[in-house]
Design a binder for these strands. Structure first.
Lengths: 170, 170
DNA sequence: ATTGGAATGTCAACAACACTGACGTATGTT
DNA sequence: AACATACGTCAGTGTTGTTGACATTCCAAT
């Protein structure tokens, strides 16, 4: 499995970027970057009684207002018990509204209240500021590559979820 | 803070890639990709009494054999109590060896045992396989962009740690 | 030689966030 | 009427992180 062989030509291009050392650097870059990625919203959240899980829920409810609990469950990839704990506090605190479905009354449709939108905005602003700075420093070509690699790294179900969200957004 | 203005020309190139929508897609890509990134090692670890924290410790001990506890602490960005719990189980289970420093006897130098190397290898193989597949699909230019953006997204201290590790490796 | 500080380890308590399993209620579908 | 779906909840457990307090060992400076 371990690919320590010397680089060899393959369909006309160098495969230097696929050496174990390159892959390990990619792995470490992913680890360190993800820390930066979550650092700013984490700082904001630590002042409240909320954590990263609340951020994720609020983000995706804002992204797809009226989404059902089941939908959110699939996107977040957690158990309903875990999500429910988070949703309960968000609803109690008046950040999220849960409305019984019209067509199917078993479903609950989730919306951010104004208060919820305010929190989402402050978290998003912090996270976007870092992403914007990174994107600007790296330039459009690097950003395109960044997204291509990330997409290829997802599980296929998550690729679908990601693509669906992309299309929703624009 | 929120950058919703229409794209405008800036030093000759379009800034379309810096719209809020593009940034949000980048954020979501990061979220979904990180799930994929950790999925394979997590599956292996869930069969044992270990978790992601053990993976990280084992990874960086393997990367820099003989590293001190303090060193590892800085790289991982957790408290000594948190790391200690993980290290203790790894040492008890004979995956990691802790040797008192020769020059400074307060320091403990950490090494993987053969058993530890075996686990590290199996975790790395799983994670590298996904990274390799993603890199191959995306191609060398995308990979370069991927790493450029990730590096720009790190905190400056982490950039230094990352660069140091890169130079160590090759 | 004593003192101060650094590196490490350990104990206890706690919180966030994930999991499994089981159960209940309301609603929809066949 | 029987079964499935969507959601919520209770109880228990595990990993990983946190603070705070305290002990030990050792280096280095006064």
């Amino acid at each position: 499995m371990s690919d320590t062989r010397a680089p060899s030509p393959y369909s006309g291009e160098s495969l230097l970027f696929l050496t174990d050392e390159q892959l390990r650097q990619g792995i470490e870059a992913m680890f360190f970057a993800y820390r930066g990625f979550t650092a700013d919203p984490d700082r904001i959240l630590s002042d409240m009684a909320y954590g990263r899980a609340h951020h994720r829920a609020v983000h995706f409810i804002n992204r797809a207002p009226g989404t059902t609990v089941n939908n959110l469950l699939n996107i977040l990839g957690v158990t309903k018990q875990s999500l429910n704990r988070v949703l309960r506090t968000l609803i109690e605190d008046g950040l999220v509204e849960s409305l019984v479905g019209k067509a199917d009354k078993r479903e609950r449709h989730l919306y951010l209240t104004d208060k919820g939108k305010t929190l989402e905005q402050s978290l998003s602003d912090a996270q976007r500021a870092r992403m914007r700075s990174a994107f600007r420093d790296a330039g459009p070509d690097a950003v395109a590559g960044f997204r291509t690699v990330l997409e290829a790294m997802m599980d296929t179900e998550m690729q679908r979820a990601y693509t669906r969200l992309k299309e929703t957004g624009q």
